[in-house]
Design a protein around this nucleic acid. Structure first.
Lengths: 126, 126
DNA sequence: CGGCATCCGCCCAGATACTG
DNA sequence: CAGTATCTGGGCGGATGCCG
Protein backbone atom coordinates (compact mmCIF):
# COMPACT_ATOMS: atom_id res chain seq x y z
CA UNK A 1 0.00 0.00 0.00
CA UNK A 2 1.11 3.50 -0.70
CA UNK A 3 1.82 5.65 2.28
CA UNK A 4 -1.20 7.74 3.18
CA UNK A 5 -0.45 11.30 2.17
CA UNK A 6 -2.93 14.02 3.13
CA UNK A 7 -1.17 16.38 0.77
CA UNK A 8 -2.37 14.44 -2.23
CA UNK A 9 -5.82 15.57 -3.32
CA UNK A 10 -7.18 12.08 -3.81
CA UNK A 11 -5.86 10.51 -0.64
CA UNK A 12 -8.62 9.28 1.69
CA UNK A 13 -6.97 10.97 4.65
CA UNK A 14 -7.89 14.25 3.00
CA UNK A 15 -11.53 13.29 3.26
CA UNK A 16 -11.06 12.56 6.93
CA UNK A 17 -9.41 15.91 7.53
CA UNK A 18 -12.11 17.63 5.52
CA UNK A 19 -14.72 16.19 7.83
CA UNK A 20 -12.83 17.45 10.87
CA UNK A 21 -12.58 20.77 9.11
CA UNK A 22 -16.35 20.96 9.34
CA UNK A 23 -17.31 23.85 11.60
CA UNK A 24 -19.42 21.72 13.95
CA UNK A 25 -17.99 18.23 13.90
CA UNK A 26 -15.41 18.79 16.60
CA UNK A 27 -17.92 20.38 18.94
CA UNK A 28 -20.51 17.64 18.47
CA UNK A 29 -17.93 14.91 18.97
CA UNK A 30 -16.78 16.67 22.10
CA UNK A 31 -20.28 16.60 23.56
CA UNK A 32 -20.95 13.00 22.63
CA UNK A 33 -17.72 11.99 24.31
CA UNK A 34 -19.45 12.71 27.62
CA UNK A 35 -22.30 10.36 26.77
CA UNK A 36 -25.24 9.82 24.39
CA UNK A 37 -27.35 12.84 23.55
CA UNK A 38 -30.69 13.49 21.92
CA UNK A 39 -31.07 15.68 18.89
CA UNK A 40 -32.56 18.78 20.44
CA UNK A 41 -30.25 18.62 23.39
CA UNK A 42 -27.25 18.79 21.08
CA UNK A 43 -28.90 21.63 19.26
CA UNK A 44 -29.38 23.58 22.45
CA UNK A 45 -25.90 22.87 23.77
CA UNK A 46 -24.03 24.13 20.74
CA UNK A 47 -24.85 27.80 20.44
CA UNK A 48 -25.38 28.97 16.90
CA UNK A 49 -25.87 25.49 15.46
CA UNK A 50 -29.00 25.35 13.32
CA UNK A 51 -31.18 22.29 13.09
CA UNK A 52 -30.30 21.83 9.46
CA UNK A 53 -26.56 21.88 10.05
CA UNK A 54 -26.86 19.58 13.04
CA UNK A 55 -28.83 17.03 11.03
CA UNK A 56 -26.30 17.30 8.22
CA UNK A 57 -23.36 16.94 10.59
CA UNK A 58 -24.88 13.92 12.33
CA UNK A 59 -25.66 12.19 9.06
CA UNK A 60 -22.07 12.68 7.97
CA UNK A 61 -20.73 11.31 11.23
CA UNK A 62 -23.08 8.35 11.02
CA UNK A 63 -22.00 7.64 7.46
CA UNK A 64 -18.37 7.66 8.56
CA UNK A 65 -19.11 5.15 11.29
CA UNK A 66 -18.28 7.62 14.05
CA UNK A 67 -21.71 7.87 15.70
CA UNK A 68 -24.76 5.66 15.92
CA UNK A 69 -28.34 6.83 15.59
CA UNK A 70 -30.93 5.01 17.64
CA UNK A 71 -34.66 5.71 17.39
CA UNK A 72 -36.97 4.82 20.28
CA UNK A 73 -40.59 4.18 19.40
CA UNK A 74 -41.94 6.57 21.99
CA UNK A 75 -44.55 9.22 21.31
CA UNK A 76 -43.25 11.52 20.19
CA UNK A 77 -40.26 9.71 18.81
CA UNK A 78 -36.96 9.90 20.67
CA UNK A 79 -33.63 9.69 18.90
CA UNK A 80 -30.30 9.23 20.58
CA UNK A 81 -26.84 9.69 19.16
CA UNK A 82 -23.76 8.03 20.61
CA UNK A 83 -20.12 7.57 19.70
CA UNK A 84 -19.02 4.30 18.19
CA UNK A 85 -15.73 2.77 19.38
CA UNK A 86 -14.11 4.30 16.30
CA UNK A 87 -15.68 7.64 17.13
CA UNK A 88 -14.27 7.44 20.62
CA UNK A 89 -10.76 7.04 19.25
CA UNK A 90 -11.26 10.16 17.16
CA UNK A 91 -12.65 12.11 20.09
CA UNK A 92 -9.57 11.10 22.04
CA UNK A 93 -7.29 12.29 19.23
CA UNK A 94 -9.14 15.60 19.26
CA UNK A 95 -8.65 16.13 22.97
CA UNK A 96 -5.18 17.78 22.70
CA UNK A 97 -6.64 20.26 20.24
CA UNK A 98 -9.49 21.23 22.54
CA UNK A 99 -7.07 21.53 25.42
CA UNK A 100 -4.77 23.69 23.31
CA UNK A 101 -7.62 26.00 22.38
CA UNK A 102 -8.64 26.42 26.00
CA UNK A 103 -5.08 26.91 27.21
CA UNK A 104 -3.75 29.20 24.47
CA UNK A 105 -6.65 31.21 23.16
CA UNK A 106 -5.44 34.17 25.20
CA UNK A 107 -2.10 34.23 23.39
CA UNK A 108 -3.87 34.03 20.06
CA UNK A 109 -6.16 36.90 20.95
CA UNK A 110 -3.17 38.99 22.08
CA UNK A 111 -1.35 38.27 18.83
CA UNK A 112 -4.40 39.37 16.88
CA UNK A 113 -4.57 42.64 18.75
CA UNK A 114 -0.87 43.30 18.21
CA UNK A 115 -1.21 42.47 14.52
CA UNK A 116 -4.19 44.72 14.00
CA UNK A 117 -2.64 47.62 15.89
CA UNK A 118 0.65 47.67 14.02
CA UNK A 119 1.54 49.97 11.13
CA UNK A 120 -0.51 48.65 8.22
CA UNK A 121 2.33 48.94 5.73
CA UNK A 122 5.06 47.33 7.72
CA UNK A 123 6.66 44.01 6.94
CA UNK A 124 9.08 41.67 8.62
CA UNK A 125 12.34 42.10 6.70
CA UNK A 126 15.62 40.22 6.65
CA UNK B 1 -12.19 34.47 34.59
CA UNK B 2 -15.03 32.44 33.24
CA UNK B 3 -14.24 28.96 32.10
CA UNK B 4 -13.49 28.91 28.40
CA UNK B 5 -16.45 27.24 26.73
CA UNK B 6 -16.24 26.48 23.02
CA UNK B 7 -19.95 25.81 22.99
CA UNK B 8 -20.73 29.46 23.62
CA UNK B 9 -20.87 31.41 20.38
CA UNK B 10 -18.85 34.36 21.65
CA UNK B 11 -16.11 32.41 23.39
CA UNK B 12 -12.64 33.05 21.92
CA UNK B 13 -11.94 29.33 21.81
CA UNK B 14 -14.59 29.12 19.12
CA UNK B 15 -12.50 31.43 16.98
CA UNK B 16 -9.52 29.18 17.51
CA UNK B 17 -11.49 26.10 16.53
CA UNK B 18 -12.91 27.93 13.53
CA UNK B 19 -9.40 28.59 12.30
CA UNK B 20 -8.46 24.95 12.66
CA UNK B 21 -11.68 24.13 10.86
CA UNK B 22 -10.22 25.90 7.85
CA UNK B 23 -9.71 23.38 5.06
CA UNK B 24 -6.01 24.17 4.62
CA UNK B 25 -4.71 25.33 7.98
CA UNK B 26 -3.94 21.88 9.33
CA UNK B 27 -2.07 20.86 6.19
CA UNK B 28 0.01 24.04 6.07
CA UNK B 29 0.89 23.80 9.74
CA UNK B 30 1.89 20.20 9.20
CA UNK B 31 4.33 21.17 6.47
CA UNK B 32 5.80 24.07 8.40
CA UNK B 33 6.40 21.80 11.34
CA UNK B 34 9.16 20.17 9.28
CA UNK B 35 10.85 23.53 8.73
CA UNK B 36 10.45 26.95 7.06
CA UNK B 37 8.97 27.00 3.59
CA UNK B 38 8.66 29.51 0.79
CA UNK B 39 5.33 30.52 -0.66
CA UNK B 40 5.41 28.65 -3.94
CA UNK B 41 6.85 25.58 -2.36
CA UNK B 42 3.90 25.37 0.01
CA UNK B 43 1.60 25.91 -2.93
CA UNK B 44 3.15 23.04 -4.84
CA UNK B 45 3.23 20.71 -1.86
CA UNK B 46 -0.45 20.98 -1.02
CA UNK B 47 -2.33 19.63 -3.99
CA UNK B 48 -5.43 21.59 -4.85
CA UNK B 49 -4.47 24.65 -2.81
CA UNK B 50 -4.87 27.80 -4.90
CA UNK B 51 -2.54 30.75 -4.57
CA UNK B 52 -5.35 32.90 -3.31
CA UNK B 53 -6.37 30.51 -0.56
CA UNK B 54 -2.77 29.95 0.47
CA UNK B 55 -2.17 33.69 0.81
CA UNK B 56 -5.37 34.00 2.79
CA UNK B 57 -4.51 31.07 5.05
CA UNK B 58 -1.01 32.38 5.72
CA UNK B 59 -2.27 35.84 6.54
CA UNK B 60 -4.70 34.35 9.03
CA UNK B 61 -1.99 32.26 10.64
CA UNK B 62 0.32 35.26 10.82
CA UNK B 63 -2.41 37.36 12.38
CA UNK B 64 -2.94 34.71 15.03
CA UNK B 65 0.76 34.67 15.87
CA UNK B 66 1.21 31.10 14.66
CA UNK B 67 3.59 31.74 11.76
CA UNK B 68 6.10 34.43 10.88
CA UNK B 69 6.58 35.94 7.46
CA UNK B 70 10.11 36.98 6.53
CA UNK B 71 10.96 38.77 3.27
CA UNK B 72 14.49 38.61 1.87
CA UNK B 73 15.56 41.47 -0.38
CA UNK B 74 16.74 39.22 -3.17
CA UNK B 75 15.79 39.61 -6.83
CA UNK B 76 13.24 38.40 -7.23
CA UNK B 77 12.02 38.71 -3.68
CA UNK B 78 12.05 35.62 -1.48
CA UNK B 79 9.56 35.11 1.35
CA UNK B 80 9.81 32.47 3.99
CA UNK B 81 7.16 31.26 6.41
CA UNK B 82 8.00 29.57 9.68
CA UNK B 83 6.19 28.46 12.81
CA UNK B 84 6.39 30.61 15.90
CA UNK B 85 6.87 28.89 19.26
CA UNK B 86 3.13 29.20 19.76
CA UNK B 87 2.54 27.70 16.34
CA UNK B 88 4.75 24.80 17.22
CA UNK B 89 2.63 24.01 20.25
CA UNK B 90 -0.45 23.95 18.02
CA UNK B 91 1.24 21.75 15.45
CA UNK B 92 2.13 19.37 18.26
CA UNK B 93 -1.48 19.32 19.45
CA UNK B 94 -2.56 18.51 15.89
CA UNK B 95 -0.23 15.57 15.58
CA UNK B 96 -2.60 12.99 17.16
CA UNK B 97 -5.26 14.04 14.67
CA UNK B 98 -2.99 13.55 11.68
CA UNK B 99 -1.87 10.20 13.07
CA UNK B 100 -5.49 9.19 13.59
CA UNK B 101 -6.38 10.07 10.03
CA UNK B 102 -3.49 8.03 8.65
CA UNK B 103 -4.18 5.08 10.93
CA UNK B 104 -7.96 4.92 10.70
CA UNK B 105 -8.95 6.24 7.31
CA UNK B 106 -9.46 2.67 6.13
CA UNK B 107 -12.11 2.02 8.78
CA UNK B 108 -13.84 5.24 7.86
CA UNK B 109 -13.88 4.34 4.18
CA UNK B 110 -15.25 0.89 4.99
CA UNK B 111 -18.02 2.40 7.11
CA UNK B 112 -18.93 4.73 4.26
CA UNK B 113 -19.22 1.83 1.85
CA UNK B 114 -21.37 -0.15 4.27
CA UNK B 115 -23.59 2.86 4.86
CA UNK B 116 -24.07 3.61 1.19
CA UNK B 117 -24.78 -0.04 0.34
CA UNK B 118 -27.45 -0.62 2.97
CA UNK B 119 -31.19 -0.46 2.42
CA UNK B 120 -31.94 3.25 1.98
CA UNK B 121 -35.06 3.16 4.14
CA UNK B 122 -33.71 1.29 7.08
CA UNK B 123 -33.08 2.76 10.47
CA UNK B 124 -31.50 1.65 13.70
CA UNK B 125 -34.42 0.93 16.02
CA UNK B 126 -34.69 0.25 19.72
C1' DC C 1 -39.76 15.37 18.90
C1' DG C 2 -36.87 14.89 15.05
C1' DG C 3 -36.52 15.59 11.12
C1' DC C 4 -36.91 16.73 5.44
C1' DA C 5 -38.05 19.88 1.31
C1' DT C 6 -37.83 24.16 -0.65
C1' DC C 7 -36.44 28.66 -1.49
C1' DC C 8 -33.08 32.13 -1.42
C1' DG C 9 -29.34 35.43 -0.18
C1' DC C 10 -24.67 35.87 0.61
C1' DC C 11 -20.10 34.59 0.95
C1' DC C 12 -16.38 31.92 -0.55
C1' DA C 13 -13.43 30.24 -3.72
C1' DG C 14 -11.71 29.90 -8.51
C1' DA C 15 -10.15 32.27 -12.67
C1' DT C 16 -7.91 35.92 -14.64
C1' DA C 17 -5.18 39.93 -14.99
C1' DC C 18 -1.89 42.98 -13.13
C1' DT C 19 2.17 44.69 -9.94
C1' DG C 20 6.62 45.33 -7.08
C1' DC D 1 8.78 35.20 -6.91
C1' DA D 2 5.05 36.58 -4.21
C1' DG D 3 1.57 38.43 -4.06
C1' DT D 4 -3.02 41.97 -4.83
C1' DA D 5 -7.42 43.39 -7.44
C1' DT D 6 -11.58 42.36 -9.56
C1' DC D 7 -15.23 39.67 -11.33
C1' DT D 8 -18.21 35.87 -11.23
C1' DG D 9 -20.72 31.53 -10.19
C1' DG D 10 -21.80 27.79 -7.11
C1' DG D 11 -22.70 26.24 -2.84
C1' DC D 12 -23.33 26.71 1.98
C1' DG D 13 -26.19 27.77 5.34
C1' DG D 14 -30.39 30.33 7.33
C1' DA D 15 -35.48 30.70 7.29
C1' DT D 16 -39.71 28.78 6.62
C1' DG D 17 -43.19 25.26 6.12
C1' DC D 18 -44.65 20.51 6.35
C1' DC D 19 -44.64 15.55 7.98
C1' DG D 20 -44.40 10.96 10.73
Amino acid sequence: MLLPNPYSADCPTRQVLDRIADKWTVLVLGLLEAGPRRFNRLRREVEGLSQKMLAQTLRGLERDGLVTRTAFATVPVTVEYALTPLGRTLAAALRPLIDWAEARFGEVAAAQRAYDARDPGRDQAA
